[in-house]
Design a protein around this nucleic acid. Sequence first.
DNA 1: CTACACCCTCACGCTACGTGAGGGTCAATG
DNA 2: CATTGACCCTCACGTAGCGTGAGGGTGTAG
Lengths: 208, 208
Amino acid sequence: MGYTVKMLADLAGVSVRTLHHYDAIGLVRPDERTGAGYRVYHRGDLERLQQVLFFKELGLGLGEIKEVLDQPDFDRRQALLGHKELLRRRKERIERLIRAVDRTLQSMEEGTAVEEKVMFDGFDSAQYEEEVRRRWGHTAAYKESQERMKDYTQADFEAIQREQTEILKAIAALADKPPDDPEVLAEIRRMHLSGQSAVLLPRAPINS
Amino acid sequence: MGYTVKMLADLAGVSVRTLHHYDAIGLVRPDERTGAGYRVYHRGDLERLQQVLFFKELGLGLGEIKEVLDQPDFDRRQALLGHKELLRRRKERIERLIRAVDRTLQSMEEGTAVEEKVMFDGFDSAQYEEEVRRRWGHTAAYKESQERMKDYTQADFEAIQREQTEILKAIAALADKPPDDPEVLAEIRRMHLSGQSAVLLPRAPINS
DNA sequence: CTACACCCTCACGCTACGTGAGGGTCAATG
DNA sequence: CATTGACCCTCACGTAGCGTGAGGGTGTAG
């Protein structure tokens, strides 16, 4: 009692072509075929596909996902904990974006009083995911890197937070200078190097 | 006092190549070049780039972004409100995913007691964004579609919510049947048609 | 005048599928 | 039992959004 491609596709919310593709690259393979060559998927494939979608959701490439899933000591629980952590970061990032939008809207309503006002926010915390990606990529020691990840989020993370707060304060102190002042730019660049990105929000409607 | 490509790239957290690309396709164009042909970006370009990144963040394609931004009656405020709405949905989706992870973790800790347990959650609210995309794509009447969007989020949205609750209840009622029972599948497919996607979470560790 | 960090324009490569083309399969129906 | 319609298959080329050199100018600090 297996699933056909279409059934699985509908179940998972992906296209049939996608399943064909995953089959082709060996990412999710039906372990059975009918006499006519039809793919037949079973529960195990379903679970595998779910894992794939999870990791994809987190921004990993298909090749990386394959590596991770094919790791013999792949620990589902650790992986899920990792998922959760990343999801939480994503959520925070989105919350930041929402706040950025709100501030921009507010600026617009306050009229042009906020001209030249520069707001900073994170568009680009994708670098954290880059980190994680690189760690998971190291097929050699997945668990170990998970450990480090834990340490990372608990200790270094706060340190990074503090550092960024410093930088933000530094920028705030320069806020009276024009935004293209070299000092300001230097500070912004420092900010970038520490993994946080600056975003300049618009100050007024464009409509010419 | 403009910005060079690299400066702008660092500011916005994108690569130089990306800026070249955006220039090539006319998405973000420096309105000036030095004698040597160097690109020189100004504040207007910065703002434009921010808009682009915003929309990109929301999943629009570069072509669509161009269309939207080049609309003469482009209303920044409406656009921002639209952003916010989408961001909120994303956030909710992520929250759902987090809950899904939590439930899975819990199932795992409860041992194998939850075998065959099927959990549903949204992997795929991307369909909402599809909707919005199609609306923004219609260059003809952007404002009008924004209006409809408002109506949508205020009235129809609740209706959809209710409908989905119904479907979920229906599925819950079938929970004692095996997950590949045709009745269950039919229900799941109905769910799909209404724009919500089903996700089957794994029930136990894989480690062979 | 020599480094070194930056700038330019091709132009080909890559990922993750979309989208037909051309052709079997199978359960229900006339 | 032949047909219809909804599936299934395998090529195979197309697309988006850049990455990544290749090959070569620029500009400013020492």
